[in-house]
Design a protein around this nucleic acid. Sequence first.
DNA 1: TAAAAATACTTTGTATACAAAATATTTTTA
DNA 2: TAAAAATATTTTGTATACAAAGTATTTTTA
Lengths: 149, 149
Amino acid sequence: MSMSMDKAIGSASVRLSKKITRIINYYLKSFNITTEQWSVLRTLDESGQVTQKVLSERADKDQATLTKILDLLEKHEYVYRVRNPEDRRSFLINITDRGSQLVEEVGPYLEEIYLKIINDIDKDQLEIFQEVLHSLESNINSQLDEANK
Amino acid sequence: MSMSMDKAIGSASVRLSKKITRIINYYLKSFNITTEQWSVLRTLDESGQVTQKVLSERADKDQATLTKILDLLEKHEYVYRVRNPEDRRSFLINITDRGSQLVEEVGPYLEEIYLKIINDIDKDQLEIFQEVLHSLESNINSQLDEANK
DNA sequence: TAAAAATACTTTGTATACAAAATATTTTTA
DNA sequence: TAAAAATATTTTGTATACAAAGTATTTTTA
């Protein structure tokens, strides 16, 4: 009884991802921030001042999407944009104190939630899970590169 | 050098899922159908005539989202709705011949793509990947159930 | 059995993903 | 160096996710 790879790998991965997003959004609701906003903010915090272009690569967001997410983060005063003096087409994105504080608060909070989620899973299997995750991603990256000529 | 579970598991899973969706959408473009429409159509094909409620559970779509996806599938004449004679609030969803034909065409096509994606990955590791995928999903399901009281 | 609660579906509003077009600016090329 | 190409960002349009409210119908309850 061999299941299609579409269902076994594709659909199952997408379904897990949605559930992760759903549960994390649930826990982040009290912080008035979404999973994707969090992922951008955390990436910015690790990166320091960067252009939108660079941030979009590091946070794996396309530029149009990042524009909207930054608009929201800026509205809530977690980040601010500054014109790049070296290239007037671009902005340098900065995290505010308020933003850094949020990262410090939310980071450990999320770790606790993840620990509960992976609690009963064998460490070695989890290692392998991560390896396969990366192999799949890099295989798809190759195909995506090829698709875009 | 231990990375946060947020990044190692959460972000990585979500990132993989987006890339899967991106590459499959790319290949499905010539069929004028999206990944999510495909997933609903395939589920319907496996299920036979079912209500929207049941289909939404099987395809892991909430009802509002499914409404829009069925609108599109219906517009392209892959499915049609029939009033449920036993409960006038609900619809029975049916696949058309055109829809079945598409499933027969796209199914094997996607399998080829997935085979290329998983090609170089060790079978045993892929097994473990799937197991962990399911464990994570079921752990999150428990938490989601609890979250909704 | 009439009122209240629950259910199936749709609608509305906000957030995200992403392709394609638009704008402003910088870099390359003829 | 003027024109063309490339780049960074925003805008527009479509699809999806999901919460919350709305509608029609069915089930439960007092």
